[in-house]
């Protein structure tokens, strides 16, 4: 027999953790939130900064993907204009379920200071939004906190039950 045989009934118990499937799946989902590189304006720069050396988003398992098909979370970082609105809908539709949306900054939340003819007054007119981050532009810390909140939200969701698709209409 191998020298390092372990007696599971005596030496500190079984190397088995009992948990629910919900918890395992949500643990996986929440700790590898891949975001879409979707820097629209100023907030996109802060989003880059949160991914870069100082703030280091990798710690949260969040890395940026260039394709919506590989992304779990859409961070709308910047002003959404009327000309661009159709593309955000298209990108959102291309993402696979389950998917989440973070609206980053005042412009994406409500139109912000750009109360003009060319700006969509809130990205939630086009896609359903899970989390609104205040600020113009929000600091990288805000985005990190937002992602942590989103993780918390994901952990509280049912994982296996057929998810109700989130649609605005």
């Amino acid at each position: 027999m191998a020298q390092h045989q372990v007696n599971y009934t005596q030496d500190g118990g079984l190397p088995v953790a009992l948990t629910t499937i919900d918890k395992v799946v949500n643990w996986g989902r929440s700790n590898s939130l891949w975001a879409l590189t979707y820097g629209l304006a100023c907030c996109g720069i802060e989003m880059m900064a949160s991914g870069a050396s100082r703030y280091d988003f990798d710690r949260f398992g969040t890395i940026f993907r260039a394709s919506p098909r590989q992304a779990d979370v859409l961070i709308i970082a910047g002003t959404l204009t009327k000309k661009h609105a159709e593309f955000i809908k298209r990108l959102y539709d291309q993402m696979t379920e389950p998917r989440w949306v973070i609206s980053m900054g005042s412009c994406a939340n409500t139109g912000g200071m750009f109360n003009t003819y060319a700006t969509v007054q809130g990205a939630d007119r086009i896609v359903p939004v899970d989390l609104y981050l205040p600020g113009c532009a929000p600091r990288p810390e805000t985005l990190q906190y937002g992602v942590m909140l989103l993780q918390k939200k994901i952990r509280s969701e049912k994982a296996i039950k057929a998810q109700k698709p989130k649609r605005l209409l």
Partner: peptide, 29 residues
Amino acid sequence: GYLHRGMEKMAENMIYNEFMPTTDRMDYI
């Protein structure tokens, strides 16, 4: 034009000092 936010139009509806924060968002680097 995908980021056209109408800053020039905004300027015409703002006093001069109000427009200063808007200029921040032009070249935001």
